[in-house]
């Protein structure tokens, strides 16, 4: 599709004056102008999860200073840019801007995650009453034989009340470990109150605290109609699969909508051994295309 530039009749402007139609990089190579920024943003955010808010904020500030000085240098206000600077300078500035973006956003989220008020409670393993909003389907993890299976529920904290009545509100992610069967079948968006003991999370993600729930959740209101509709569809699928033999009946919802709640441990182990867990990890796209 790209005719020879010379034969097109459009004069090539060697002077480099910016024009209206110059967004297209020459054909044949991908447009990677945003790649430096994107990779830097992503890597900085990832590093922040493991290095903490302070480190990543310092990195962002340094990068901001670097990009400002670099830009001034490149436009000629700070010395004469050398050959390397002319050739790669704007790329370096774009990468530094990516570090600024990833660093500040990461630091903001990590600062909320690591706020002292909640972190000290988690370190004390304080017993609290928390008001939470479910953010994901509860998923079972394999428990020790003889003990009830533990459910993992990703929730967002609204407020928590300490044993002496102090209340604390923070929009952070809390992972609930629950053994009570009433936690099963909660829908995302459900608001609830739960009692339990806080714990320190493993780190590496945005989970601010782990709540070991001591009893059943007390539901407050209902989830949104969209979540209820999705939930009823999933429940219908489970009902439809109920007459099937265990292995197949547990697998089908997993393949279709990623619902692995009834998947047999042996089948799950088979999937893991063959490296095909992605098939029942995500979405129904597996079946229509499969």
């Amino acid at each position: 599709m790209s005719a020879t530039p010379d034969g097109s009749g459009t004069p090539i402007d060697p002077g480099g004056g910016p024009g209206p139609a110059q967004t297209i990089v020459a054909g044949g190579v991908p447009d990677l102008r945003l790649a430096g920024l994107a990779v830097a943003t992503w890597l900085t955010a990832l590093a922040g999860l493991h290095l903490g808010a302070a480190t990543v904020l310092i990195a962002a500030v340094l990068a901001a200073v670097f990009s400002a000085v670099g830009a001034l240098h490149l436009v000629g206000l700070l010395g004469r840019p050398g050959r390397w600077a002319r050739r790669h300078g704007w790329i370096a500035v774009a990468v530094a801007l990516g570090v600024v973006c990833g660093g500040t956003v990461g630091a903001a989220r990590l600062a909320v995650r690591d706020a002292d008020a909640l972190r000290s409670l988690a370190e004390q393993r304080a017993s609290i009453t928390a008001e939470l909003v479910v953010r994901d389907d509860p998923r079972p993890i394999r428990g020790n034989p003889g003990r009830p299976a533990t459910l993992l529920v990703t929730t967002e904290l609204v407020t928590l009340t300490e044993s002496d009545g102090r209340r604390l509100g923070a929009p952070v992610q809390v992972l609930v470990l629950a053994a009570h069967p009433a936690w099963r079948g909660l829908l995302p968006g459900q608001r609830l109150t739960a009692e339990g003991r806080l714990g320190v999370p493993r780190g590496g993600d945005l989970t601010a605290a782990v709540l070991s729930a001591s009893g059943p959740p007390v539901r407050r209101g209902a989830p949104s109609w969209a979540q209820r509709a999705a939930g009823s569809l999933r429940a219908g699928l489970q009902r439809a699969c109920a007459p099937l033999p265990d292995a197949r009946g547990g697998l089908l919802p997993g393949l279709v909508v990623g619902d692995t709640s009834r998947l047999l441990p042996t089948v799950e182990e088979d999937f893991r051994a063959t490296g095909m867990t992605h098939l029942n990890a995500v979405s129904g796209a597996n079946v229509p295309w499969g």
């Binding site: 402007d13 110059q22 967004t23």
Partner: peptide, 23 residues
């Protein structure tokens, strides 16, 4: 995509890395 349509884009790209910020 007729050559006539594609050409301005290809030629425009030659211009010195001064890329427009509003793709």
């Amino acid at each position: 995509a007729s050559p006539a349509a594609a050409t301005p884009g290809a030629s425009a790209a030659l211009v010195s890395g001064e890329l427009s910020a509003e793709p």
